[in-house]
Simulated scan of single mutants.
Amino acid sequence: MKLYFKYLAILFKSQVQYRTSFWLLTVGQFFIPFSVFAGLYFLFERFGQIKEWSFFEVALCFAVIHMAFAISECFARGFDAFSSLVVNGDFDRLLVRPRSTVVQVLGSKFEFTRFGRLLQSIIVLVYALANLPIEWTLLKGLTLLLMISSGVFIFTGIYMLAATMCFWTIQGLEVANIFTDGGREMAQYPLNIYQKWVSRFFTFVIPFGCVNYLPLLYILGKTGSDSDLYVLAPLAGFVFILPCLLVWQFGVRRYRSTGS
């Protein structure tokens, strides 16, 4: 972790060397999700609700998944841009260093300008919570934190799986965006508005439903007697990262360099 934070400090200093560019990019990232949120607002302005979900309930769902995505995009950007390390042969240098390849790839790139997107999500989160009649308890607060952190692990795991494919394909595959950008857009709404096969896939295969939909039912008081299962649902995100790490190690052991 000491090495990881050194990576963070070095890359942060390099990015703020051009301060005007840094702040303009950060402000741009702040306003980009507003167009999506505006679409959400006008949708409910027209139809009132979607399958008994109100605007502020969906806004809470929106804020949680966008916060998780922004944090993951900031700190796991090294896996998202991993193909450049393979193409240029730079990954060979990482292999001869006496440190974990996961830490080194994570530390190879950070996007601190994504904090603008994170700030926007926090504002939406506060706005939604201020307008929802939630009876807060310590367990509900912990569940909300687990939802966000679990979402970070899921997005990071998907980035890691996409990066692993680069060991065989060299270039990154755009199909991974179906599960990162597409997963973010899908999970900003409650899963029960989709067809059953979609909700099942994004609950039992890529567990976005365990991050957003199921624990959200508990926080909003829409569960039955077995509410403990909804509280534990976000743990699926932490479990999801484990097979992703195993697949990554499998790919590293079979890496044969690019000859660059």
Rank of each mutant, 00 (worst) to 15 (best):
F5H: 10
Y7K: 04
L8E: 04
S14F: 05
Q15P: 02
Q17Y: 09
Q17G: 12
R19F: 08
F22P: 07
F22A: 10
L25F: 07
T26M: 15
V36G: 11
F42I: 14
L43F: 14
E45Y: 13
R46Y: 14
Q49T: 13
L60E: 06
F62C: 03
H66I: 08
M67F: 00
S72G: 06
E73Y: 11
E73P: 00
C74R: 10
G78A: 03
G78I: 09
F79R: 03
F79T: 02
D80H: 15
F82M: 10
S84M: 08
G89E: 02
D90P: 05
F91E: 08
L95P: 00
L95D: 01
V96S: 11
S100V: 07
V102T: 13
V102S: 04
G107E: 04
S108H: 11
F110I: 07
F110S: 08
E111Q: 14
T113H: 14
F115A: 10
G116N: 02
S121F: 02
I122N: 09
I123L: 15
V124E: 09
V124I: 15
L125K: 09
V126W: 06
Y127A: 11
L129Y: 01
N131L: 12
I134Y: 11
E135M: 10
E135D: 15
W136Q: 02
T137E: 03
K140E: 07
L142H: 01
L142T: 06
L142W: 08
L144M: 12
L146H: 02
G151L: 04
V152I: 15
F153R: 03
F153P: 00
I158F: 00
M160R: 03
L161K: 06
A162D: 15
A163Q: 07
C166R: 07
F167W: 07
G172W: 05
E174G: 12
V175I: 15
V175P: 03
V175L: 13
I178T: 10
I178N: 09
F179N: 04
G183F: 01
Y189H: 06
P190Y: 14
Y194R: 00
Y194I: 04
W197Q: 05
S199M: 13
C210I: 05
V211Y: 00
P215M: 05
L216W: 01
L217P: 02
I219F: 09
L220K: 05
K222L: 10
G224T: 01
G224K: 02
S225V: 12
S225P: 11
D226Q: 12
D228E: 11
Y230D: 00
V231P: 04
F240R: 07
I241E: 05
C244Q: 12
W248Y: 13
R253C: 00
R256P: 00
